[in-house]
Design a protein around this nucleic acid. Structure first.
Length: 922
RNA sequence: GGGCGGUUAGCUCAGUUGGUUAGAGCGCCUGCCUUACAAGCAGGAUGUCGGGGGUUCGAGUCCCUCACUGCCCA
């Protein structure tokens, strides 16, 4: 009993079934020892770990589609292929999520306490953390689930601790009070990268500060008047002559008195940072709340006065503003300044404001004690790794972006004041000693006190994810995985995490792995220390109008819902076909609909082939599926269409091979699309119908050969397509192998078969030229028929004029002309054909013999247009050929080509002219 | 302010080191239910390659400039 495909293509049923099967059968797991012994090339990829709180969006879908195409391609080429999935604990995001949940229950993390809160987050993770990976399975991602990780896993946590301690021991981690970006909502420091700068309309205020000696005043300009409570100086440019007389004087800072005491006196200092042309040329200096002012403060030994607490409320006991939120404080201060007549001017001003990437609130620069990673020694190696070509970027332009950033990098603030994350392995003692250790110490290393407490800060999430390329393979332990799978081959990601993640992995990978010997014990070079050898950066998925998707705009496309409507295969193919390196993707449903139609086309082509196989078997023709590889090799005695389709398969495999090697998903997808639909379905299947004659007296041997070619080409085309459309190809492929009732497919999955290589199919370039000639002729006849008003079904006689090769070709393929162009009879003319119902090319003329009148006016219009076009081409060619410089300098093949083309154009022009003249005048 | 892209058919995009008369999909127009597929088949229309200048025998492709537009960094 042969496997029958249902008449209707229904992706949802097929896809869910196979997605489950692939995971259940663990098809893409690679055992560690098989990895060690494999002699083939390895292809390892790390999935950019989605946040455990995440939901799949179109960006993931693009990323996963591209990675999966490459993974499946490499696997089918026989490489040792490992794609490692996992999720990121996502410090702030997850903590916020759980805190929100707690709030809805009327409680908070503070009332729960740290330990209980952490437990609560783990519970949350167990319940909801798998959502995004479940969604991934629906995409068909062929990952190695046996290697799945979570960044807070015991094993990875140990590695994180080890990395931290080593960096500390190497003097690369230090702790200190600096101005950091403070998120007053999450109440934690964040790194420079987590601050999003945006332009906002604001105001600049000119405020008069009276001189302490009563001799006058100085006017400072500021966009943040509330910070004046923390001013410890006023600064002017030393070269600014307006203020020379004030150098060294002091001002009395308005509103700064506490407990009814006097206002503070602060000095006027000179520093180049004050720009004479900005505002009044005099700026207030608030070292505790502005990074630039902090610099001035350090240069002039000014005190730092913190006046805002961790939630950005004024913290200045005894002050009238104590306890006010920062913007309320601003209003009150402005009112009071006005009342004192100290607010000189208020002007509109566009200011660049930093907001928190996670919470969206305005970042408050704040002086606080934090842990930093000294970045320059790491950056140096990371720069060199790319410079020396150990890591290649595609598109190449990102190399420059990377380089630029790496050269202007600042120390990385790695501590976060959160409860969810890798807690920093450092212990404080009352004696002031800090103990950094791999294992929890029993006592203070300096004074022996057991009253030590662990640092409350946790590490930036990106610190642990930056280590992943080696920690997932077991670092710091030695392991087979590490020897065999590091460095990974490729990283596929969006540019948005180029700095967050890609750059950090490079720095940390080069730093840590350089110390690790190779599998054979030899020292590792920088080339083998890199976390990956290639980085492919894809664009953004936008909506159909090229708008960025955002929740506020309400134009977010949910991949799962699109998948439900069109099928995963169609969505994958859409993304692949539009994924041209360096460009964003405007995701359109119309286009997706088109690729669902493509899937449907494939489905029906398969149904057709299977029906033919059934017919053949009923007629007693045996089908030998084992002979399919041999059927891809055709001798010159095979029919033209056989040699042609095999040649095209050969060429298409080559195009796809090259395209995928260059990350040209679009070219690869389009080549397969064109081959499958435009050639296999539109031409080959139509032609082969002629051969599939299993009736009485038919040539069953020839029909059997044609059927085997058809089966072989279909089977190869499915393999070619399977990385792009894994589900439908899997379904049809299995159906194909059960055709003869022999249920043994050569593999558990099409994904575990061999990817078609050009040499798998024989190539006969002459067949392509001949076939093109025939195609042109058929198209010409169809057009002429239409123009003469021949009903679709009616067969008509055709006259042909052409050289001997044309005659030979048509004579050998009359059946083909009859079937595809409904030609009842061919006769040959001895002279060029003109007149009604005629079509000409440079090589032949055809005329349909049909008595009905054609639309002379329309025909005249068509010919006129045609003539104009030919004339233009002819003129251009003649001008070129008449150009002595061109003739002298252009390469021979160009000249030759142009000559040939010019001659053909001339011939066609004459024919068209004649056809025009032959039209009856009105 | 510094840097990097983009501008090609109605729409979304290709166009390899400059080389013959610029392509695809969708959409549009016309005719067909030809039993694998109407989610289809066949035929057809559509471009001063953003403007200007330059290099070259030859420019969509290289250079300069202007305009518009997007992004990154400060």
């Amino acid at each position: 009993m042969s496997h029958e495909l249902p008449k209707a293509y229904d992706p949802s049923e097929i896809e869910e079934r196979w997605a489950d099967t692939w995971v259940r059968e663990r098809l893409f797991d690679v055992a560690a020892d098989s990895a060690a012994h494999a002699s083939s090339a390895s292809f390892t990829e790390l999935l950019p770990p989605p946040n455990v709180t995440g939901r799949l969006h179109m960006g993931h879908m693009l990323n996963h589609t591209e990675m999966d195409i490459l993974t499946r391609w490499h696997r089918m080429r026989g490489d040792l292929t490992v794609w490692v999935p996992g999720t990121d604990h996502a410090g702030i995001a997850t903590q916020m999520m759980v805190e929100r949940q707690l709030a809805s229950e009327g409680t908070s993390r503070e009332s729960l306490g740290r330990v209980a809160f952490e437990q609560r987050v783990w519970q949350w993770k167990e319940l909801y953390g798998g959502a995004i990976l479940d969604q991934m399975k629906r995409l068909g991602a062929s990952v190695d689930w046996s290697r799945e990780y979570f960044t807070m896993d015991e094993r990875l946590s140990r590695a994180v601790k080890e990395a931290f301690v080593r960096l500390y021991e190497q003097g690369l981690i230090y702790r200190g009070a600096y101005i950091v970006n403070w998120d007053p909502s999450a109440k934690t420091a964040v790194s420079d990268l987590e601050v999003v700068h945006e332009e906002r309309a604001g105001k600049i205020y000119h405020i008069r500060y009276p001189l302490a000696d009563g001799s006058g005043s100085i006017i400072v300009a500021t966009t943040r008047p509330e910070t004046m409570l923390g001013d410890t100086a006023v600064c002017v440019n030393p070269a600014d002559e307006r203020y020379t007389a004030l150098h060294g004087k002091r001002v009395r800072l308005p509103l700064s008195g506490v407990h009814g005491g006097p206002d503070r006196e602060i000095p006027i200092v000179t520093d180049d940072w004050a720009k004479p042309e900005f505002g009044t040329g005099a700026v207030k200096v608030t070292p505790a709340h502005d990074p630039n002012d902090f610099g001035i403060g350090q240069r002039h030994q000014l005190p730092s006065l913190s006046i805002l607490d961790e939630s950005a409320h004024v913290a200045l006991p005894g002050s009238a503003y104590h306890g006010l939120e920062r913007y309320t404080a601003r209003e009150r201060i402005l009112e009071d300044l006005k009342a004192l007549d100290l607010l000189v001017e208020v002007k509109d001003h566009t200011l660049s404001i930093g907001t928190s990437q996670r919470t969206g609130v305005v970042i408050e620069p704040r002086l606080s004690m934090q842990w930093f990673l000294k970045i320059e020694p790491l950056a140096e190696k990371a720069i060199r790794a790319v410079e020396e070509g150990h890591i290649r970027f595609t598109p190449d332009q990102y190399r420059k972006t990377y380089d630029e950033w790496m050269h202007n990098i600042h120390d990385w603030c790695i501590s976060r004041q959160l409860w969810w994350g890798h807690r920093i392995p450092a212990w404080h003692c009352a004696c002031g000693q800090l103990t950094v250790a791999r294992e929890t110490p029993a006592a203070c290393a300096a004074c022996g006190s057991t009253a030590i407490s662990q640092e409350t800060d946790v590490l930036d999430t990106w610190f642990s994810s930056g280590l992943l390329p080696f920690t997932v393979f077991g670092w710091p332990e030695k392991s087979l995985d590490r020897d065999r799978l590091y460095p990974t081959q490729l990283l596929v990601t969006g540019f948005d995490i180029l700095f967050f993640w890609v750059a950090r992995m490079i720095m940390l990978g080069c730093h840590f792995m350089l110390e690790e010997p190779m599998a054979d014990g030899s020292p590792r070079t920088l080339a083998d220390s890199v976390p990956f050898r290639e980085v492919y950066i894809h664009g953004l998925v936008r909506d159909a109008d090229r708008q960025k998707m955002s929740k506020t705009k309400g134009n977010v496309i949910d991949p799962i819902s699109v998948i439900e409507r069109f099928g995963t295969d169609a969505v994958r193919f859409t993304l692949a076909s539009m994924a041209s390196p360096g460009t964003d993707i405007a995701f359109s449903e119309e286009r997706t609909d088109g690729y669902r139609a493509f899937a449907n086309k494939i489905w029906n082509a398969a149904r057709f082939v299977f029906m033919q196989a059934q017919r053949a078997q009923e007629a007693g023709v045996a089908i030998h599926l084992a002979s399919l590889p041999a059927a891809l090799q055709a001798g010159l005695d095979e029919p033209l269409e056989t040699r042609w389709i095999l040649t095209r398969l050969h060429q298409t495999a080559g195009t796809v091979e090259q395209a995928l090697g260059n990350y040209r998903f679009d070219e690869a997808a389009n080549a397969i699309y064109q081959f499958f639909w435009g050639e296999l379905c539109d031409w080959y299947i139509e032609i082969v119908k002629l051969r599939l004659e299993f009736g009485e007296g038919a040539d069953l041997a020839a029909a059997g050969r044609a059927l085997h070619t058809l089966l072989a080409v279909l089977e190869a085309a499915l393999r070619l397509l399977s990385p792009f459309m894994p589900f439908i190809t899997e379904e049809i492929w299995h159906a194909l192998w059960s055709l003869c009732g022999a249920p043994a497919a050569p593999a558990k999955s099409i994904a575990l078969t061999r990817y078609p290589q050009p040499a798998d199919a024989s190539a006969d370039p002459a067949s392509v030229a001949a076939m093109e000639q025939l195609q042109q002729m058929i198209v010409a006849i169809r057009a002429a028929r239409k123009e003469s008003g021949v009903p679709e079904k009616e067969a008509v006689p055709v006259r042909i004029f052409g050289a001997e090769d044309v005659v030979t070709l048509t004579q050998a393929n009359t059946g083909l002309l009859a079937r595809l162009a409904r030609v009842s009879e061919v006769s040959y003319a001895s002279a060029a054909l003109t007149g009604e119902g005629t079509r000409s090319t440079a090589h032949f003329d055809i005329a349909v013999v049909y008595e009905r009148q054609i639309d002379v006016a329309a025909e005249r219009e068509r010919l006129t247009k045609e003539l104009a076009k030919l004339e233009k081409g002819l003129a251009a060619a003649e001008k070129q050929l008449g150009n002595e410089a061109f003739m002298a300098k252009a390469p021979a093949h160009i000249i030759e080509g142009l000559r040939k083309q010019s001659a053909e154009t001339k011939m066609l022009y004459d024919k068209t002219r004649a056809a025009m003249d032959a039209l009856p005048t009105l």
